[in-house]
């Protein structure tokens, strides 16, 4: 119980610092804007086509009924089709999340050196606190700040997308697309941000000044991108995305894809998928990530014990 309270106390203070010092928050806002804009690029450039497609011509109505489709299915097809465009954009824009892998370590690697800079390192180690609890608190506090900003940016994305859709085609973003982006954030974004935060925070034990930590932070960022891309890359060579996004896309279905499937007589996917990956590969990715995290945390802990008697 005491250990949990200690970890939470450090995490809470670190969370506060992340907002007062600003670097992780600013980077997350920039990454959020970059990814959000990327996700909207394709739907927005095609919006005029969708606008004109919202009402059917008599020829279209005839063609539509020839396929055995009902007229009331058409608005669903259009609404979900626009949603699918947003989802499709993640194929093009997901790699922009790698900016977080590159830049977050630079912003978060200073969390531990800050205690040396402020001189709080000395008395912190005289409290009944272990190095493991200290590391856990620092990591969780920084991650919490990163995730709060990420959640705000996700909310902003939904708000902007829905405002644009309501003012142009008078639809909300489809529930399928909304669910996809929530899944993408939780299953794809959260592990990526957690890794980027850990890759920055934990190596911070090696440095005693913030200035000394910045360049190594950048190197860690580059290594993180390399690690992520080489270890978790999807089987499709044309698309720079990780296995989680690939898995979510291969399992994405909407009202529009169901109608297309009815017309074409085959299952529709958004990724021109030739090789299917199962949940096993995604779980393997998480396991590899967990192993890398535990290795990093273990090394940081050993360093504190050996070098700082903490």
């Amino acid at each position: 119980m005491n250990a949990v309270r200690q970890v939470l106390a450090i995490a809470q203070t670190e969370f506060r610092f992340a907002f007062r010092r600003g670097a992780p928050v600013i980077i997350m806002i920039l990454v959020g804007l970059l990814v959000g804009a990327g996700m909207m690029m394709a739907p927005l450039t095609n919006m005029s086509n969708w606008q004109s497609a919202t009402s059917m011509t008599p020829e279209q109505i005839q063609k539509w009924t020839t396929y055995g489709l009902k007229l009331e299915e058409y608005p669903i097809f259009i609404r979900d089709g626009i949603g699918d465009m947003f989802v499709y954009s993640s194929i093009l824009a997901w790699w922009e999340m790698f900016a977080a892998l590159l830049l977050l370590p630079v912003a978060t690697i200073v969390a531990i050196p800050a205690d040396h800079v402020f001189g709080t390192w000395e008395w912190l180690r005289t409290t009944p606190l272990t190095g493991a609890r200290y590391l856990a608190g620092k990591f969780l506090g920084t991650l919490a700040a990163v995730l709060v900003v990420a959640a705000v940016m996700l909310g902003l994305f939904f708000a902007v997308a829905n405002v644009i859709l309501m003012t142009t085609v008078h639809f909300w973003l489809s529930s399928y697309a909304s669910l996809y982006f929530i899944e993408l954030s939780l299953l794809g974004g959260l592990p990526l941000l957690a890794w980027a935060t850990a890759a920055g925070t934990l190596p911070g034990v090696l440095f005693r000044s913030r200035r000394a930590a910045i360049f190594p932070g950048l190197v860690v960022g580059l290594l993180s991108v390399y690690f992520w891309v080489s270890a978790f890359r999807s089987p499709s060579s044309e698309m720079l995305m990780d296995k989680v996004v690939y898995f979510l896309l291969e399992n994405y279905h909407s009202g529009a894809t169901a109608i297309e499937a009815k017309v074409l007589g085959q299952t529709i996917t958004l990724t021109w998928i030739t090789t299917r990956i199962g949940i096993g590969q995604v779980l393997l990715m998480y396991l590899a990530l967990l192993a890398a995290f535990l290795l990093l945390a273990g090394l940081a802990r050993l360093w504190l014990q050996w070098k700082e008697n903490f």
Partner: peptide, 9 residues
Amino acid sequence: PQELGLYPD
């Protein structure tokens, strides 16, 4: 300690 560090924020 001889030199006590505090969090200025």
